[in-house]
Design a protein around this nucleic acid. Structure first.
Lengths: 206, 206, 206, 206
DNA sequence: TATGAATGAGAGTTCATTCAT
DNA sequence: CATGAATGAACTCTCATTCAT
């Protein structure tokens, strides 16, 4: 009754998803062929269809799983600083976003830059999830502005700008690069916090 | 300056490039077919080859022309503030980057997110051009740090972060949206300048 | 005669054959997929192979069973009018053919229009059975001609023509249509008998 | 300026259609592969698409062209006997139907037995054409009944029966067979006319 | 008896590109 | 400068069938 270790339980499905992420990251979704994917996993192309519904659905699943996990973990992280100051909460958000994104580079990349490959219906679902994530940040910024601590013309645009910067990090960050994750986090945290804060001197750009 | 009316020579080529930009933006380079492109311009597919060398070369041209123009205009813009303070120069850079990017949304998008479609040789050329552009910003940041005005752990990473934020703007910016270009420029300028400046109080993150 | 309830052994096999007939009728043999068939019966495709040898063999079985039954019943019907006049025997043949065919529309359709799907060996077997059936009709026509009652140039061709007409009926006949089976039988019997009879006046076509 | 004889004008398109008819007749529409078809014509599969829209559309075209021609020629034939007796007109119809069908066996076969391969929309169009053809025969039968010359319970059903018999002829008729076309025509004409006529003696089936 | 997974073959269709006209 | 036709490669996906469990 014991299942042979390593044998075809969810193993193959996982391998497909993992290889899929890699290939999509490298060549783009449209440019990745199922032949390639199958070869990577050591299957015939036809066998893929025992594990995925269609190529399109695979893309959807990969992005959906990523966004769901991201949302969940973000909420958990923010729960730790519930009731604290907007600055503290923003700091926490940045920390979590960066660590998560630097760890799951591939998932992030796909979820951010391969939305074009989604069918219209799938696209809608994914965009809704993204909106929910953005809403977390916007809420923090709104609190900060309401408390007179943040100085932002428009919290939604500010949120987009912040996310663009943070997510951009996962594009160029290399684990074996010059900077540690801590460095990257510190650098971005400082830039963004300073950028949002209402500064006494009022050094608005000339 | 005179051009014989009806000699639609360059006209067709321009139309192809314009439609190409649009289709690549919408569907991605790999997903855009030359059939589509030809139809868009009112030609048969075969006729495209009177105006482009290959599909690959079209992509290269589009990106190359964009980057060349961007570099040229950036240098012109910075020349206007030669010798001024790093803050002023950074402000100028941000202003120019944003206005240019919000005006040429499609070119920017293609040049940023379709590099994967380039052949290795073409990729090298383009990346070199991008490096030169990034170098302009890094230089400004370096000056600022050297002058003790900017407080940045790593100017290269800071430059990437800044560019990610700025370029991100062209992704979500809609000319008919809630914010004017001026608003967008002001908002980003303020965030970034504050983010870079060496603040007296020393509000390092907790 | 007793069969353990729940031992759905033959039940499943029957369900498969029934669904097979339906699907082949609707989509054609080549166009029917075993996936479809399995789904129709509530099985996985692989499980079908516990009940059929191959797709090809299923087709063969369906047709073979039909033709065997048809032959058997036809002989029984004709036995009832053994020794009677060719006219009476022809009448009986027509009656039986039509009633049988209108009742087993699907079997008839498959046996008539899906022979192309048979493998060469299976094809031979089936065609031999059909020949035997046609022979029954030809024999009646021959008797009629010999007795001077039927006026037919060629009894084989006449048999084909008659069968074509009769079998055609099963194509358009709808149980819930305008005509009852009795109507259909009467109409065809009259047409065919008149068509075969040696008419006194000799109304040969001009 | 003169076009090379035999060169690629409509020649290739015609060859495709001709080979298509043959292959569909032999293997059935679904079973015919475009690879086969291309090979038959000496092309690469892809090249077919310079001449056909899709496989489905090819089928539609073949049937549509056939039915259109059939209708047209039938009307021409019937025009020759306009105003004559129903018997004469029926005779003419039978003659034309048989000669046309024995000459264009393949077209007839496809148009009669491959309707299942048509998409729902195409199916509708084709069925409408067939209805128009059947209407020609029904009209003749109606005239005959009205004039008291034909004895038919139901002209529509009679028409179906007649067409089934006539069309069936094209299934088994072989140009090199035992019977000449004339024989076949005479045999069927006699059977059908006798079958329809109102006979003095009133030999209704017992 | 039923199943999930695997397979090899092959389906229709689209692709970028070439070339004679 | 534009075109229709041709090409070879590649695409996603489905097929009937097998086999260990």
């Amino acid at each position: 009754m014991t299942r042979t270790v390593g044998s075809h339980g969810p193993t193959t499905s996982l391998a497909i998803r993992k290889a899929g992420l890699r290939l999509i990251t490298e060549h783009g979704f449209e440019a990745m062929s199922l032949r390639q994917l199958a070869a990577e996993v050591g299957l015939q192309t036809a066998s893929l269809y025992n594990h995925i519904k269609t190529k399109q659905h695979l893309l959807f699943e990969l992005i959906h799983e990523h966004l769901t996990a991201l949302l969940e973990q973000t909420d958990a992280a923010l729960a730790q600083v519930a009731g604290e100051s907007p600055t503290r909460r923003l700091e926490r958000f940045v920390l979590h976003h960066l660590t998560y994104h630097m760890e799951k580079k591939r998932e992030v990349f796909v979820a951010n830059f391969e939305l074009r490959g989604l069918s219209p219906e799938n696209y809608k679902v994914i965009v809704a999830l993204r909106r929910r994530y953005e809403a977390r940040l916007i809420a923090i910024l709104d609190e900060g502005v309401a408390a007179g601590m943040f100085d932002l013309l428009d919290t939604q645009v500010a949120a987009y700008a912040i996310l663009a910067m943070l997510t951009g990090a996962c594009t160029w960050y290399r684990p074996d690069g010059r900077l540690s994750t801590d460095d990257v986090v510190m650098l971005h945290t400082k830039m963004l916090l300073n950028g949002c804060l209402h500064l006494a001197g009022g050094n608005t750009p000339s």
